[in-house]
């Protein structure tokens, strides 16, 4: 072993500076801020120190709504996206010549700007001239005021989000499908096992780690949903702000109402949620490695 030197830190210096300034410091500062009341210039002090911001946060019906909406969003988007992606991935994987083509098409939403494509979805959800209501018309469904009525705001957001999130899941499942030993399928073919059985008995169990991984990543992303809301409802959180999500709430408190303490408290709550999710993910992937 060559002798230990501090030279390594020279190489790390740029990253360490950026990380301290824009990740570690703001994290600590946000946590501290969440316990401080408004700063008063006259008294040179904070109006309160303690849990006041958290009390205000949990007493705010808007925050309750944002928690509720975000939970609905996570519960609808993640499983639907995973199941649809799994089916599509298995079907793509069974193609030979068209595999690359389908893979390219299905991955497209991943690389495009949520803001730009959200604006397009907004146009497609238009109640009078939108493509979606036009298609629904074929089935005798009357035009739905997707973006103007609170009860349809969340479904519109969820449809858009499923469309957007499938790309990543399909990619991960396709990669996972390559790692399943061909022998398993060959054995099933010799026994002429029905395809559906092969799917439930071989494919799904073999892909289980990927499915769990995608679910957790999807849940973490879904808890942070913001751009989708912003673009679909043109900067608002849906009609009468009824599609308020946690991150939208945090920014609204910070940027529009200047309630820094409450915004910081909200972001600490978000941090805790993400931390729990990440722990689950680490636990699961850790178990996979042990096996």
């Amino acid at each position: 072993m060559d002798k230990k030197s501090f030279k390594g830190y020279l190489y790390l210096l740029p990253s360490i500076i950026i990380m301290l300034a824009f990740t570690i410091y703001p994290l600590i500062r946000a946590i501290i801020m969440s316990f401080l009341g408004d700063y008063s210039i006259i008294n040179h002090g904070y109006s309160s120190i303690g849990f006041d911001n958290y009390k205000a946060l949990f007493a705010d019906p808007d925050f309750a709504l944002s928690l509720r909406n975000t939970s609905i969003y996570v519960i609808c988007v993640v499983p639907a996206s995973i199941i649809l992606s799994l089916i599509i991935a298995v079907l793509i994987n069974s193609c030979n010549k068209t595999k690359a083509f389908f893979q390219t098409v299905y991955f497209l939403p991943y690389v495009t700007s949520v803001i730009a494509i959200g604006i397009v979805w907004r146009w497609m959800f238009n109640s009078n001239y939108g493509l979606i209501n036009y298609f629904l018309g074929f089935f005798g469904i009357d035009p739905i005021p997707w973006l103007n009525r609170p009860e349809y705001a969340m479904p519109a957001l969820i449809i858009f989000a499923i469309w957007k999130s499938m790309a990543f899941n399909i990619l991960i499942f396709l990669a996972g499908l390559q790692t399943i030993p061909e022998d398993l399928y060959r054995a099933a073919r010799i026994d002429s096992t029905p395809k559906l059985r092969v799917f439930t008995r071989i494919t799904v169990p073999q892909l289980a780690p990927m499915i769990v991984y995608s679910s957790v990543i999807g849940m973490i992303g879904a808890f942070k949903v913001y751009n989708e809301v912003f673009s679909l409802f043109q900067g608002k959180a849906g009609p009468a702000n009824k599609a308020m999500t946690i991150v939208y709430y945090i920014y609204d408190k910070f940027y529009n109402s200047y309630k820094y303490g409450v915004a910081a408290a909200g972001s600490v709550v978000l941090f805790i949620i993400i931390l729990v999710m990440t722990q689950i993910q680490l636990r699961v992937t850790g178990e996979k490695k042990k096996k």
Binding site: G8, L27, M33, I250, Y251, L275
Partner: peptide, 25 residues
């Protein structure tokens, strides 16, 4: 090789758990 390499590396990894949305304010 440098002292504290493992610690710094784990610290880097730990920052991945912090949601960027939280830091923006």
């Amino acid at each position: 090789n440098f002292p504290g390499k493992k610690t710094v590396f784990s610290l880097f990894l730990a920052t991945l758990m912090i949601p960027g949305e939280m830091l923006i304010i």
